[in-house]
Every structure is written in C-alpha cells, then in structure tokens.
C-alpha cells in the first residue's frame, strides 16, 4: 500500500517505516474504504430522493430514520470502536518488551536527546536509534508545549512542561528519517525539526560513543 504513487515522502504517515506507523496506516486504509462507502451511500440516496421521489416514498419516514440514524451507525461504529481500542492498546509502551529508553527535551526551538544507556550521551537536533528494537521516548519540555513526532515511525506525543510523556517508537530498517515539532510553539515552530538516524542494531552502542556522533553536545 505504502508504495502507492503520491504516498511516499520524508514525512508521510502513509509510507510507514516502523510497526506503529504501519499499524496506523493500515487503520487509515480501513477507515478510508469504510468512509468512501458510506459517503457514496448517502449521496446515492440523496440523488435518488431528488430524482426518483416516487421510488423513495415507499420507505416510511420512521424506517428511514431508524435504519439510517440508528442501525447504520450501530453496525459501523461498534466494530470500529473495538478495533480502534485494540489497536491503541497494542501501540502502548509496555515494559514487557524490554524497550530502550531515550529522553527527549524540547526547548524553543530545538530538541535535545539524552541516552541513559550510553552513560548519558546528549545530542542536539539528531536522534539516534537502533533498528528493530522498541524504544520508549520520554518527552518533556523546558518552556512551552511542543510535540514530538516522527511521522514515518509512529504517532505523536505532546512535550508539556512539568509533565513527562512516554511514546513507543521503533524503526524497521537503518536509514535517515524526519522528526518535527507538531504543536505550535511560537516564531520558530516551522523550523523546529530534527534528524532521526537509525543505526543497525549491532552498531548502535558503538555509534553512540563514537567521537564523530552527529549532533553530539560536548560535555
């Protein structure tokens, strides 16, 4: 699906590169098909009542309202809500997966990342991840509200001063991805982005302590 023309792009949620984004992209295609069918249904009904009033008059008003207003939503919404709940539960940060922990700190208008697993190495504007391993990003802010988002990997979570939110992300393949701030945070909002560099899992620990680590903040 993701390779459909026009869906690719460095920030496309429809071109997923991780399990969370992939799950949500599938959810989207399901939603799209359902919505398109419902839209067609209503518009066909509208055309029929306008063009063929005699035909449509055979259905009593009460039946119209019960079928369209109660039965139809019940049939559509009940499984949808259950599916959504189960999907959401699967995307939550569960400690059973033994995730790697990285701290993300937003400040007008840049991102700092701390890697406790590598003895507290810090980077600015570049997030380093291992491929194929679940990661919990602990997101907070030092000033106003920002939001942490890597569209191709997962959904977003707000960075709120005084709060620490946890987002589960994972990248399937090594490579470079785009991350950005997704909550309006003032004049620098449009440019508040970061690079995500995904390393092969085996090379990750070494990369973090290498002297030429991209974005490294000297201590």
């Amino acid at each position: 699906m993701a390779t459909l023309a026009g869906c690719a792009g460095p920030r496309s949620t429809l071109d997923p590169a991780g399990p969370a984004a992939s799950t949500i992209a599938t959810l989207w295609w399901v939603l799209l098909v359902g919505a398109a069918l419902l839209f067609l249904l209503v518009m066909v009904l509208f055309v029929i009542v306008m063009m063929r009033p005699g035909w449509a008059r055979k259905v009593s008003p009460a039946r119209w309202i019960v079928l369209g207003g109660l039965v139809l939503p019940a049939i559509v919404l009940t499984p949808l809500v259950v599916y959504a709940l189960m999907t959401g539960e699967r995307l939550l940060p569960r400690s059973a997966d033994n995730p790697l922990r990285i701290e993300a700190e937003a400040e007008q208008w840049h991102w700092n990342f701390t890697y406790p697993s590598a003895g507290g190495v810090k980077t600015e504007g570049v997030l380093h991840l291992p491929a194929g391993r679940p990661i919990d990003v602990v997101v907070t802010s030092l000033d106003v509200i920002h939001a942490f988002w890597i569209p191709r990997l997962a959904g977003k979570i707000d960075a709120i001063p005084g709060h620490a939110n946890v987002l589960r992300i994972e990248a399937d393949q090594p490579g470079t991805y785009e991350g950005l701030c997704n909550e309006f945070c003032g004049k620098g909002h449009s440019g508040m982005r970061f690079d995500v560099i995904v390393h092969p899992a085996a090379a990750y620990d070494a990369a973090l302590v290498a002297p030429d680590l991209a974005g490294r903040i000297a201590r």
Partner: peptide
C-alpha cells in the same frame, strides 16, 4: 479513533 488521531492530530 485514538491511534489514527495520534498521526493526524495537528
């Protein structure tokens, strides 16, 4: 739908 909103929000 919560998971979809996590991507589409804002």
């Amino acid at each position: 739908i919560v998971p979809f909103d996590w991507q589409a929000h804002d």
